[in-house]
Design a protein around this nucleic acid. Structure first.
Lengths: 187, 187
DNA sequence: TACATTTTACCGAATGTTCGGTAACAAAGA
DNA sequence: TCTTTGTTACCGAACATTCGGTAAAATGTA
């Protein structure tokens, strides 16, 4: 049988799933292999620098997704600010699978991960802040208010993911998302 | 010389430090051994059920600390509500070392940990919620408001720890703690 | 042919765990 | 008192397993 080339998308989705749910050290090559459909050695063909390169690819993959589906939406001046906000928050709900998924920043900032990915996590969070600052300004906040608000939103999203998991109650996630939307639109 | 008994406190502090910073799977027996001063086999003498029993002990240890220093303070009717709140928040600052330490709930809710410790994490968070609901009521919130507020506080504390680490900016933690205090006292 | 991709088989190192044994004490019997 | 027995605390060495990673060959494409 001819070895069929596994699609890049399937590989990335498989890697992403494992790294998000297991963290960096917790993700074993066996799991990564099973999730992608590629044997270990084939993974090393695609990612010669091994596990770290796989995690880097996941980080870039998710960064791209967020850029396209969240940030680009929030900054799309073809839409009204409130529509932009709503669509951006919908994308975030999808990103975190309604509160079931774990944030990659969290998964990779434990253990060995924190030294390896500090820079990319820092960059990713900073992008969150500036995108949400922009939507705040578009919704008539002052720049100072918008900046504070953006930080609050980031904290609340990260926090509600942990609490939702810890309490085994996904409504914590959904309610927080609605609170965020209301706090922007009612002001 | 008879082998001197290593103090339980030193052992627990060592285990706690490693499990909090590394997570469950990330914490190796070698690190746990180094941090406690006990060889691997001696750790198995103290904790016959191995790594899981060590993590259980850490969870109980921290639960006790929080009970004594946070919850007991928040509910101490010998003090005025605002003093209770301030002292409780100070204990939380100490618990998380000004934002540098990682919450044990977060560390143990990744990877294999989530199945093993789900129950204890659930219980711990529920205690947080009821203690902060009490202080809210003592500060003239309605029970409904106090319950919502308690959930917000838990989310904010968990969230600001992640964001502070991700942005490498401890002021995120301290500012959030002050926001929490203000939001209780100004209402 | 030449090249790209996947696989099998394997490696040294590290993992969590257990075994066998040692040294120091306490309790009990003489 | 001296001795014996049992218990506690600890450790070196080995356990089976899994880890991340690699070489070489098989299998595909052009």
């Amino acid at each position: 049988m001819r070895p069929q080339k596994v699609l890049d998308k399937e590989i990335l989705n498989g890697l992403t799933k494992i790294f998000r749910s297991r963290g960096y050290e917790g993700a074993s090559l066996k799991e990564l292999s099973d999730a992608t459909g590629l044997k270990k050695a084939s993974l090393y063909h695609r990612f010669p620098n091994g596990k770290q390169e796989m995690a880097d690819a996941v980080l870039i993959h998710l960064e791209d997704w967020i850029n396209t589906n969240v940030f680009h939406t929030l900054l799309d001046t073809n839409l009204t600010p409130s529509v932009r906000l709503k669509k951006g928050l919908l994308a975030i709900r999808e990103l975190y699978d309604g509160g079931e998924a774990i944030c990659i920043f969290r998964a990779l900032s434990m253990q060995a991960g924190i030294e390896l990915f500090e820079e990319q996590i820092n960059k990713g969070m900073t992008q969150w802040l500036s995108a949400f600052k922009e939507i705040g300004i578009a919704l008539s906040f002052t720049p100072e208010e918008a900046e504070k608000k953006a930080l609050q939103v980031l904290i609340q999203v990260q926090g509600c993911l942990i609490v939702a998991k810890g309490l085994s109650d996904l409504s914590v996630f959904e309610n927080t998302m609605q609170n965020i939307e209301n706090s922007y639109l009612k002001a």
